[in-house]
Design a protein around this nucleic acid. Structure first.
Lengths: 218, 218
DNA sequence: AAATAAATTTAGGTTAGTCTAAAAAATAAT
DNA sequence: ATTATTTTTTAGACTAACCTAAATTTATTT
């Protein structure tokens, strides 16, 4: 078994590596709010356990074994988030910290039953895909709202920024998962948009916001 | 905040102290599968935090503060057990180990919502009372089935032994919480009983079993 | 290509929780 | 009331995860 700490390192490495060839010690240290020296210690340990491939002074990536562990933690995290929102009346801005704790609960049956109880959801409350029990991840291809043009119609599929502040802002503007967005106007100067959400009267959003909303064409 | 370990010590002390004036170091060590020396160390720490009253070479009891923490852990443990049985199709013999983990999740809202989701249950799947959010415990008075007599009618309210083996045995005999038990016969020699469960054809149970079933007269 | 800067690792320490073995206190037995 | 036994505590060490400061390696300038 791996400790909570080990699990958290693997999860961070998984998230940081995405796309890239390897992750640096400093990047991990920053993500985990810890010091580079501590990271080096842990990397040695994870390497001994064959969970990562670690080359001194170069960087780190997950082994197949390590990736499996990471994806299982992410699976649990996202299932728990879904449970909190769907069954316990949590807002999508309130679930992260609790899910950070729940993701480490060790019980195959518990995860399987939560999954069943939620009717096998494919995405979490933020639109992030939930890995299946084999660690397979079905990524829905979506784009930033900021890349769309005037008069385009689209459906909201996710968010980039997951901060409570941003999520609360979106919720207040009815910008929730699955909502229909029509771009009414784009301001050439600052790329701010005037959009209609679910056919309601248009509202303004900054380009900063548009760059943090994921959508798919409709 | 208290660590998982501290919480577990407080819970153990709470359970061991029940009735008695104080708990011994050895009793705690045995309950927690650890060594007396480790217990002494922890007792000092808990005492510094004013969670227990500790007198060297004599014993330990909880302060009001410590008891509150212990009861909150027990509350969470029992609510989670109830959740697992009521919502996730767990058997009453399968919930303990998972609840041991879940009881340490730190989120007031989570506990409140689980409580609400379960419709504010008063007892857990084994008939043990669930402390309310103020740490009040409403104990239902019940007696051992072994103390009842021939032709007595009663309702099952709980169990003494919580081991999976015993719980599985009971479930197989339809001896579940709330079932109706009528004592048809008692063997003078070994105090074994012939009982009818929910008016079905009578079955035999040993005195050992009868001493581990809690009931209330009907 | 040498010098400087940045990133990374090593060395040595800290804390929480555990342990074994020895010392001290309390209890039981003669 | 001594002696023996048991219980408990102290002393000293260990591991996991962290830290700071120093050393080393890699990257960047000049």
């Amino acid at each position: 078994m791996n400790s909570f700490t080990e699990e958290n390192y693997l999860k961070s490495i998984y998230k940081l590596v995405s796309g890239k060839e390897a992750v640096t010690t400093n990047a991990i240290a920053e993500k985990m709010n810890t010091k580079a020296a501590s990271v080096t210690d842990m990397l040695k340990k994870l390497s001994d356990k064959k969970l990562i491939k670690y080359e001194k002074y170069y960087g780190v990536k997950l082994t197949a074994k390590g990736e499996k562990v990471a994806l299982n933690i992410i699976r649990k995290h996202r299932l728990w988030e879904m449970f909190l929102v769907e069954k316990l009346e949590f807002g999508w801005d309130e679930v992260h910290d609790v899910a950070e704790q729940l993701e480490h609960i060790d019980s195959e049956k518990l995860v399987a039953q939560i999954d069943k109880f939620l009717n096998y959801p494919k995405v979490d409350p933020h639109g992030d895909p939930i890995p299946d029990s084999n660690g397979k991840l079905h990524i829905q291809k979506s784009q930033l709202l900021s890349t769309f043009r005037k008069n385009d119609n689209c459906l909201m599929t996710g968010v980039v920024d997951h901060s409570p502040a941003f999520l609360q802002y979106l919720a207040k503007a009815s910008l929730t998962l699955g909502c229909e967005i029509k771009i009414k106007e784009i301001n050439d100067f600052d790329r701010s948009q005037q959009i209609s959400v679910n056919k309601a009267t248009p509202v303004f959003i900054s380009n900063e916001v548009a760059k943090n909303i994921l959508v798919t064409a409709k």
